[in-house]
């Protein structure tokens, strides 16, 4: 089972839902795919963490073989190569690791070498297994780190994924292969607008989904109308509660302080399980 918690907008409570859901289920594992700004671990008490490099192949030029013909820089769509007077410069942070330069080089002067773009962390937190990735600052391409995080999932276990915000490529990368998507929104015009964008993506991917309304009660109820119109079930509502906001600010998952919520998250899981099983 893979449940991905996503939201069109940042700050709607996506991480809160993912963490509290994982903590409420026995044996669930938590995966934080928001590798630009991983946050799940800030809500948890971390034990020992194992850190591993995430690497991408990047060109290395054999300057002796290179004739400065310029074919590599001309081919590169990402401006990662510069042909100077006496050498070719490589800008590794521009490179998308497509491998084209080493194919096109007529002198066989380009060899790809691994380069670290981020870190994969695995460990235990609050009694559950946590995997998260962290993209190095200044690196633009998150997908390789996301792939590394997802590679640690086992399909026969309960995997809860915290997705990056938005609807851009890292989000699609994260959502793929999910059995169910929980879309977290807040009842504000911003929240509704971003929910609509997320719903459009999810419908295209064809993955079963439901909505969690966070900070319920502050808006005008237009999110309910929207969900009704688009035939999307609202599977949970978390009220606008200063206590929950305060617990979040100091890094305490609210199910630990408000145990009645554990039961509600378990019920939520039951609903998801039913939907997923009925689809198979």
């Amino acid at each position: 089972m893979i449940i991905t918690v996503a939201s069109g907008k940042g700050g709607t409570g996506k991480t809160t839902v993912a963490v509290n859901l994982a903590l409420s289920l026995d044996g669930a594992k938590l995966f934080d795919c928001d590798v630009e700004e991983p946050n799940a671990h800030t809500l948890l008490r971390l034990g020992e963490l194992d850190a591993q490099s995430v690497e991408m192949p990047t060109p290395h030029i054999d300057q002796d073989k290179c004739t400065l013909c310029g074919k590599c820089a001309e081919f590169c769509q990402f401006n990662a190569l510069f042909v100077g007077k006496d050498r070719v410069l490589v800008y590794p942070e521009m490179c998308h690791s497509c491998g084209g330069c080493s194919i096109i080089c007529p002198e066989d002067a380009i060899e790809e070498q691994p380069r670290k773009v981020g870190t994969l962390f695995t460990g235990e937190a609050n009694g559950i297994s946590l995997v998260f990735g962290e993209l190095n600052i200044g690196e633009p391409i998150a997908t390789s780190v996301i792939k590394a995080v997802k590679s640690r999932m086992k399909h026969d276990e309960v995997n809860i994924i915290d997705a990056p915000p938005g609807t851009a490529c890292p989000v699609i990368e994260t959502m793929q292969e999910s059995d169910y998507l929980l879309l977290v929104t807040e009842p504000t015009p911003f929240g509704l607008h971003d929910l609509e964008m997320a719903v459009n993506v999810v419908k295209e991917l064809g993955i079963p989904h439901g909505v969690v309304v966070n900070r319920a009660g502050i808006g005008d109820g237009s999110e309910r109308k929207f969900c009704e119109e688009r035939d999307i079930p609202i599977v949970m509502e978390i009220p606008f509660d200063r206590r929950i906001a305060e617990l979040y600010s100091v890094g305490t998952p609210f199910v630990e302080d408000m145990p009645e919520w554990k039961e509600r998250f378990r019920d939520l899981y039951g609903v998801i399980e039913e939907v997923v099983n009925s689809g198979e």
């Binding site: 820089a73 990402f78 401006n79 990662a80 190569l81 510069f82 042909v83 100077g84 007077k85 800008y91 521009m94 633009p140």
Partner: peptide
């Protein structure tokens, strides 16, 4: 033509100037 490059504008501009 590098002015609108999504990334590496400086590199492409330098190639033009060179």
């Amino acid at each position: 033509d590098a002015a609108m490059a999504s990334g590496g504008a400086g590199i492409r501009a330098a190639q033009t100037v060179a």
